[in-house]
Design a protein around this nucleic acid. Structure first.
Lengths: 210, 210
DNA sequence: CGTACTTTTGAATCGCATCAAATCTGGTGG
DNA sequence: CCACCAGATTTGATGCGATTCAAAAGTACG
């Protein structure tokens, strides 16, 4: 991984990441950029919280390993903040890894807290960010409470997609994990839905039919 | 339901509800108290957000109704705030009902937002509250990703209980819903675990065994 | 005492997990 | 360019566990 301090093209960054636009100057100046390779570890559970991470490009996942060895995806971010709740904690409560080569912005936690106190606009935006994350997690819980694979798929398309159409931005295997299913179960459910005519699949484009 | 404005015994309230202790005076002065009967509706999905709710006594649940008619519990609060994310939204994204006769504090959303801007301490506490809710929801997602009933029960006791011991504060039926199981599956899993010796059940006290 | 609800058990069924293995894919290096 | 590899995708067979439907027993409350 490579670290470059203060070599950011902020204009380009802000254009890409609306969330970054609100970062106060003082905080921007102490930010660090980080490039990772396809399967890098950002932090591990139990480590002290030193940074808040902003995903510029690529994908970062919060994961927790089960007794069994299988991993649960707690959050997946392809742009925007990740592990927002860590700011409130001394240590991390899960692991964070990159799922592909990624570009990140590391914002020191101390400076971040100061910025929240000093900049009311930023503070508001941050609260809004936390609230959005809560809504997203509730949708996820609701989805995982559904008992059939088809229902979870439908729910995902409805809530994450756009008017009944979804372009999948990850492998089906990791989608399965996000849906709380084995990949085999997902594949089979997709095929069944396609045969039923409930779902139209074109590559990574999924369209729901009435 | 009964509404009494400004008839609160704030000392008693603050003793009961630590979260209430941080509410600024200006906001306290426009708060309303509400008593509900056992199955009252606080708000419905789609309604405009007018208040933030603080549960003083009793239990409030955020629920969403599935196509099937079965209800999913999105949040359960027996003290403290509920529907925190609604403050950031124009309308509610789910229904809220009381599960038993309850006492609530209604804090007008407008005044709440003003208070957040004016009182840095309150603002910080609120962010901390949102972060806590996020962590709780992540734990819930992790639990729902587990495939077996016993694993979910264990996970619940570990994360919600105290050192491997949990005192259940709800009916087993609604616990089952929270675990994403049918009540029959929960009863059977509990019995199996008891027979295995993995779990000790004494009324509403559940203790995990190694 | 009756009503509504939870708790508990039973039996049958279905769907998902699991294990196994074949094919397809993109990327690497010879 | 091709061989090769790691990973994703896909299909098959099997078993278990949760759902579902049904019903009895227990419990709280008016």
């Amino acid at each position: 991984m490579n670290r470059d301090k203060n070599t950011l093209d902020w204009c380009a960054l802000i254009a890409m990441q609306p969330s970054a636009g609100l970062i106060p100057k003082a905080l921007r100046e102490v930010a660090t950029q980080l490039h990772t390779d396809s399967r890098g570890t950002l932090f591990r559970i139990g480590e002290p919280v030193r940074h808040v991470y902003l995903v510029i490009d690529g994908e970062v996942r919060l994961i927790r390993l089960e007794r069994h060895g299988s991993e649960v995806i707690l959050q997946r971010s392809r742009g925007g903040f990740i592990a927002e709740a860590s700011l409130d904690s001394k240590i991390y409560h899960c692991d964070a890894v990159t799922a592909e080569p990624s570009t990140l912005l590391l914002l020191p936690a101390v400076a971040f807290r100061t910025a929240l106190e000093d900049d009311p606009t930023f503070c508001k935006a941050w609260q809004s960010q936390l609230a959005k994350e809560i809504r997203k997690l509730r949708a996820q819980c609701e989805r995982l409470s559904l008992h059939s694979a088809a229902d979870r798929i439908t729910h995902y398309i409805e809530s994450e997609g756009d008017d009944g159409a979804l372009t999948l931005k990850q492998s089906r295997k990791s989608w399965a994990a996000e849906l709380g299913l084995t990949h085999e179960a997902l594949y089979r459910a997709l095929r069944r839905m396609q045969e039923d005519g409930t779902l139209l699949i074109e590559g990574n484009q999924f369209t729901r039919k009435p």
